[in-house]
Every structure is written in C-alpha cells, then in structure tokens.
Amino acid sequence: MFIIGVILITIGVTFSTLGALGLVRMPDLYNRLQTSTKATTLGAFSTIIGVGFLNPAWLIKTIVIATFILLTAPISSHNLARASHKWGIPLSDKTSVDKYDSKSGKKE
C-alpha cells in the first residue's frame, strides 16, 4: 500500500508540473487548455488517490474528491473553450483548419 501511494503521488506531482510547464510554453489559448488543465487533472487525481493509499482509512473520501475533480474538469474546460471562441480569441498561426463558426452555431 505504502509503495503504491508513493508511486501514485510522484506521478501526480510530475504531471502537475508538466501541465504548468505546458501552460507557460504553448502559443495560443486552446493549446494551453489542452495541455494544462487536463494534465493537471490527472495530476490532482493521482495525488489524491495516492494519499488515500498512504492512509487507508481515508481511501473512500479521497476517491470521492478525486472522482469529483475528474467529472468536473472536462465540463469547465469545455465551457471555457466555447466562451473563448465566442469572445474572439484568435487561434495560433500553426492552426491548419478551423471548421467551427461560433456565430452560426449560436442560432441553432
């Protein structure tokens, strides 16, 4: 149990840091959303479950918190992406194609 917990927390901390690095390095908002929020979600998920393994009496509570983060993170990042597209944030120059027209999408 102890070893699994330590491994899980180490993975989680690593992915959180990589997500933060992605947030700083990526060229435009959408790529930042991609790398950052979701790497951080796995990071926090893994850290919290890892604490549950270190301290087995807390396991159920930590699974509840981790599941909550896993369920809500995609909803907030999806909402932010759509809001930014309607707000008019430009995509990076490397983008090859943009098939989403948020103005026409709003009518339906």
Binding site: G12, L23, S36, L80
Partner: peptide, 26 residues
C-alpha cells in the same frame, strides 16, 4: 494576454491547490 487566459490559469491553480491541500491533510 487576454482575460480567458487568466481564467484558465486560475482554474488550474485551484486544481493544483486541491491536490496540495490533500497532501497537507496527510
């Protein structure tokens, strides 16, 4: 550069802080 960028950073900040809080609880 823009407002949504800051909101994304804040969203991520809270997620990392949740993990840190659980570590501190342990």
């Amino acid at each position: 550069p823009s407002l949504p960028d800051r909101v994304i950073a804040l969203d991520m900040f809270t997620t990392i802080t949740t993990g840190l809080l659980v570590l501190i609880a342990h």
